Computed example of a mutant assay.
Amino acid sequence: MTSIQKYYGITGPVPFENVTVDTDNLMFLDPHVIRLRGEPDHFAAEAVRCLDSFFDTVARAVMSTDPAARTHAESDLQRFTEPWETRLGMAETGFSGHGAASDIGTRIWEAMNTDLEALLHLGILKNIEELPLFVEGVDRDITSDITTRIVFGPLAAFTKQMLDHYPEFSTQPHQTAEFDRQVWDPDQHTWAIERVTLPVTDGKALLLVPRGWTRRNLLMSPTRFFETSLLSYVQGEQAVALSNGKILKTPKDRLKQQPTLQRGRKTHLQVALRAHAAGSNLLELFRTFVADRFDPPAELDAA
Rank of each mutant, 00 (worst) to 15 (best):
V196Y: 07
V196C: 08
V196D: 09
V196R: 12
V196K: 14
T197E: 10
T197G: 07
T197V: 07
T197W: 11
T197F: 09
L198H: 10
L198T: 14
L198Q: 13
L198C: 11
L198Y: 10
L198W: 11
L198F: 10
P199C: 01
P199T: 02
V200Y: 08
V200D: 07
V200C: 09
V200G: 07
V200P: 03
V200M: 12
V200S: 06
T201S: 15
T201E: 14
T201N: 14
T201Y: 15
D202M: 08
D202V: 10
D202Q: 04
D202G: 01
D202W: 01
D202E: 04
G203T: 07
G203E: 02
G203Q: 08
K204G: 10
K204E: 13
K204F: 10
K204S: 09
A205E: 11
A205D: 05
L206I: 05
L206P: 04
L206Y: 06
L206H: 04
L206A: 06
L206K: 05
L206T: 09
L206Q: 04
L207N: 02
L207G: 04
L207I: 01
L207K: 00
L207D: 01
L207Y: 02
L208H: 07
L208V: 05
L208T: 04
L208Y: 11
L208A: 03
L208P: 14
V209W: 07
V209Y: 02
V209R: 01
V209C: 02
V209K: 01
P210Q: 07
P210E: 06
P210D: 03
P210M: 10
R211G: 10
R211H: 14
R211L: 15
R211F: 13
G212W: 11
G212P: 13
G212K: 13
G212H: 11
W213D: 09
W213G: 12
W213R: 13
W213Q: 11
W213T: 12
T214R: 04
T214F: 01
T214A: 07
R215L: 11
R215Q: 11
R215W: 12
R215K: 13
R215P: 14
R215F: 14
R216M: 11
R216A: 09
R216K: 15
R216C: 04
R216V: 07
N217Y: 14
N217W: 13
N217C: 15
N217A: 15
L218I: 00
L218W: 06
L218D: 01
L219N: 13
L219M: 12
L219P: 03
M220R: 15
M220P: 10
M220N: 14
M220D: 13
M220K: 15
M220Y: 12
S221H: 02
S221I: 02
S221V: 03
S221P: 09
P222L: 09
P222H: 09
P222I: 06
P222T: 11
P222Q: 10
T223M: 08
T223L: 08
T223W: 08
R224P: 05
R224V: 12
R224T: 13
F225A: 00
F225C: 00
F225L: 00
F225Q: 00
F225H: 00
F226S: 03
F226P: 09
F226Q: 04
F226W: 06
F226M: 04
E227V: 03
E227Q: 10
E227S: 05
T228F: 06
T228M: 04
T228C: 03
T228W: 03
S229K: 03
S229T: 05
S229E: 05
